[in-house]
Design a protein around this nucleic acid. Structure first.
Length: 475
RNA sequence: GCGGGGUUAGCAGAGCGGUUUAUGCAGUGGCCUGCAAAGCCAUGGACGGGAGUUCGAAUCUCCCACCCCGCUCCA
């Protein structure tokens, strides 16, 4: 049974779905007005892992992640850079897709863009006006928060306690200062679309309600995003969708914690962000994913150079043991569980237990740090087995490989490992050289044995002498 | 003002009433060892401070200190 911490109820809840075995999952994506930074990456990776885990557990996940490409902040940047909004959005969108791919984020079922949903947004606003939840005022359309009884339920705020800035407080077009724009009248030099209220453009919050409805339906299972979206963004989405449809919008609200740098939130507005493209010049995507997943998704992460370096070391070490397992996995024989010797039977038990412990960890609100602890503990056992066992059981190693494949599919690690996997001709050749070298070593001919090792090293093949056998890997 | 989160060893970070206080990186010692590299084993070291509840608290309660975040720019 999977348990999820729900921001809405502020407690752990048993996970169930509206439709059997299908998860309707909407993840609030980024505004494409700048480069992807580590904070975006955290959100993307955290929910990617959650999505992957749900799939591992047998769910079909309809995973929608939007791109906000028309909004105040995009317009602002387009003015600064003196470029068209469309051109700007297209470019940053490309960068985001590139970085997501580099981080091995599994492609969403669909990545809807706000700019391509203007008409449905207008329709949505019209219906809200018809139902009396919104009103037009001088070309703007506002949601009337006083009409929605549950306003503030997600952020646990009473309407009266919400602090408002002076601009909103003094906006004469609004009935209540907390009313938010569904539609904004055109301002000079800004992109606009025709609407019943004249030229204008949609407000930020509307797109998610509309695109969520379009691709997942009026009620969904999971809606996620960064903690900073709880208020006002998600609060407003709830107000829009629930007042129009009269039913719960999302059943589980998940929010990831921030990344702190020097004890301060990493954010676009503070300008203290680490951009992903640059980070990936120095660290592998696996290291970045490990760095993120070593912390529970709701906790804050402290970022510093040391921490990401450590993740890189860990990633390399884990990669090596997974690769070793693959190299010894042999599919030619079925594993006969009843005929295993003690050593093999022992490892087989560990494989089964590791799988079970991993699931237990992940079932508890997707506890990836504990899941990783299981992976590390198991990898120690395999390392021991491969290096210290007289006769390696290829069929058993195939079970081990299967286990690692399961772990890695959830964590999204080492997707390209098979290209390092020793197979066929290369394997035979290297094994031949290892055999020859072993003869030299037996004769204490260190010159020749070292030469073989050095030459192989130049060919990106690393040898490792262990008590029972010589191990090798492509690097 | 209102609403949240946090303070765990050198660093990162689980645990949230009870086996020796995970796990990773870094230490230290050992095994292995022609060298190299890796691995395995062992080991030191922490629960912000104070009081309370309890047979028992990092975990619950209260007080104090400090930090972070949200309250219409943010993942």
């Amino acid at each position: 049974m999977i348990k999820i911490y729900n921001t809405l109820t502020r407690q752990l809840e048993e996970f169930t779905t509206l439709e059997p075995n299908v998860v309707r999952f909407y993840n609030c994506g980024p505004t494409v007005n700048g480069l992807m930074h580590l904070g975006h990456a955290r959100s993307a990776i955290a929910f990617d892992a959650i999505r992957r885990y749900l799939e591992y557990r047998g769910y079909t996940v309809n995973y929608v992640m939007n791109f906000t490409d028309i909004e105040d902040r995009v317009i602002e940047v387009s003015k600064q850079e003196k470029r068209g909004v469309l051109e700007l959005a297209e470019e940053y969108l490309r960068y985001f897709r590139r970085d997501m791919r580099n981080l091995n984020i599994k492609p969403a079922t669909i990545n809807p863009r706000a700019m391509l949903h203007i008409n449905p947004m207008i329709d949505f606003a019209i219906k809200l006006i018809e139902k009396g939840f919104a009103y037009e005022s001088h070309g703007d359309v506002y949601f009337d928060v006083q009409k929605f009884d549950h306003y503030g339920k997600l952020s646990n705020q009473k309407l009266a306690n919400i602090l408002l800035n002076t601009e909103d407080a003094e906006n004469p077009n609004k009935h209540h200062p907390a009313d938010f724009a569904l539609w904004k009248a055109k301002k000079l030099g800004e992109p606009s679309w025709p609407s019943p209220w004249g030229e204008g453009r949609p407000g930020w919050h509307l797109e998610c309600s509309v695109m969520s409805m379009t691709y997942l339906g009026e009620s969904i299972d999971i809606h996620s995003g960064g903690q900073d979206l709880i208020f006002p963004h998600h609060e407003n989405e709830i107000a829009q969708s629930e007042s129009l449809f009269g039913k719960p919008f999302a059943r589980y609200w998940l929010h990831n914690g921030y990344i702190n740098i020097d004890q301060e939130k990493m954010s676009k507005s503070l300008g203290n962000f680490v951009n992903i493209f640059d980070l990936l010049k120095h660290y592998s995507s696996d290291a970045v994913r490990l760095f993120i997943l070593q912390t529970h998704y709701r906790s804050p992460i402290s970022f510093n150079e040391d921490a990401i370096k450590q993740a890189q070391t860990t990633s390399n070490r884990l990669f090596d043991v997974v690769l070793l397992t693959k190299n010894f996995a042999d599919g030619s024989n079925e594993l006969n569980k009843d005929a295993l010797n003690d050593t093999d039977a022992n490892l087989f038990t560990k494989i089964e237990k590791a799988r079970q412990y991993f699931i237990t960890a992940m079932n508890e609100d997707f506890n990836t740090p504990n899941g990783l602890a299981v992976v590390f503990n198991y990898s120690r056992d395999v390392n021991d087995y491969i290096r210290n066992t007289e006769e390696i059981n290829g069929a058993l190693m195939r079970e081990s490989e299967k286990l690692f494949d399961e772990f890695m599919s959830v964590l999204g690690l080492f997707e390209d490992i098979n290209q390092y996997h020793s197979i066929g001709t290369v394997e035979k050749l290297v094994n031949l050289l290892i055999d020859i070298r072993q003869e030299f070593r037996k004769d204490k001919n260190w010159v020749m044995s070292d030469k073989i090792r050095d030459v192989l090293k130049e060919a990106d093949i690393t040898l490792e002498d262990t008590p029972k056998r010589v191990l090798w890997k492509l690097t």
